[in-house]
């Protein structure tokens, strides 16, 4: 079955298209890496996939239902780019956040034995059981991202969508986090990952989609290197982040973003973050 299906999807702010005529399918069990330069519309495309926005033109289907009409909230888990903002200040424990994964299934009733068990096993699976009663704001960036993944696991979600989850992580926690995503994918979870950094995506994802408003490439990971898609999508004035992770270099994304602005980038569309 197809987890996500886009046909000729266009999304515009006013007259400015942010996503233009994109068609692609994400079969269940796939690990799709969605890459593209800043402002390429990849975050917007992810929200379109989840039905959080409706396309200006074209159709989005989520598990064979129109995405905006899709009602099985527990099947879809989303880790937004700004997900950690509230987590810093709000007093809330790891366990409280992971329990939220059960809310789509049980919003008002008492938690059943199944609910509690799902929470415990989710904490175990991402290795944060010992942190369950810690405040989320007191965790390291890597631990915090694991909390969000545990929330998805508690929901027993079929689709995990993440928007640049490792922007603030050091190289080591970033590697560990992507190993975790790889494991979950092997166990059957469909993963859609928006990444600025092409290196990590080619190492982990099974398929890759390269976007800059339009879809420049969609295919197996190993084929992207041979195509001209990256150069075409990123353009000559954009630095392609395809570095070797063995060196553990860290590219702060916000820095890159600033750079794009200060160079007076000609692209007129809004930032692709929400």
């Amino acid at each position: 079955m197809t987890a996500v299906s886009l046909s000729d999807v266009t999304f515009s702010y006013g007259d400015v298209p942010v996503v233009d005529g994109v068609s692609l399918d994400v079969p269940e069990g796939e690990f799709l890496g969605l890459v593209g330069p800043n402002g390429s519309g990849k975050s917007t495309l992810l929200t379109l996939m989840l039905g959080l926005r409706r396309p200006t033109r074209g159709e989005v289907r989520l598990f064979d239902r129109p995405a905006h009409d899709f009602a099985d909230g527990e099947r879809v888990a989303y880790v937004a780019q700004d997900a950690t903002d509230a987590a810093r200040d709000m007093p809330v424990t790891v366990r409280e956040v992971v329990r939220m994964g059960r809310y789509p299934r049980n919003l008002f009733g008492r938690f059943s034995a199944d609910d509690r068990e799902a929470v415990v096993s989710a904490l175990d699976r991402v290795d944060i059981a010992d942190l369950a009663d810690r405040r989320v704001g007191a965790l390291s960036g890597g631990q915090r991202q694991r909390v969000f993944v545990a929330r998805a696991l508690a929901a027993e979600a079929d689709l995990l969508a993440l928007d640049e989850p490792t922007v603030a992580l050091d190289a080591e926690s970033r590697e560990a986090f992507y190993d975790l995503l790889g494991d979950l994918n092997e166990q059957g979870m469909t993963v859609v990952l928006v990444e600025h950094d092409i290196g990590v995506v080619t190492a982990r994802a099974s398929r890759i989609a390269c976007l800059n408003k339009r879809l420049y490439f969609h295919g197996d990971t190993e084929d992207i290197a041979d195509s001209d898609a990256l150069a075409a999508a990123y353009g000559a004035n954009q630095r392609v982040l395809d570095h070797d992770h063995g060196h553990g270099r860290y590219h702060g994304n916000s820095h890159d973003r600033q750079r794009g602005h200060s160079h007076g980038d000609a692209r007129a569309e809004p930032e692709d973050e929400q």
């Binding site: 989303y78 809330v92 956040v97 919003l107 929400q274």
Partner: peptide
């Protein structure tokens, strides 16, 4: 009564929307 939806939306409104709250 509405404690859970209130907490979820307070903590992570976008994820709550994705979960169809």
């Amino acid at each position: 009564v509405a404690y859970r939806p209130l907490v979820y939306v307070t903590f992570d409104e976008t994820a709550a929307r994705a979960s169809r709250l």
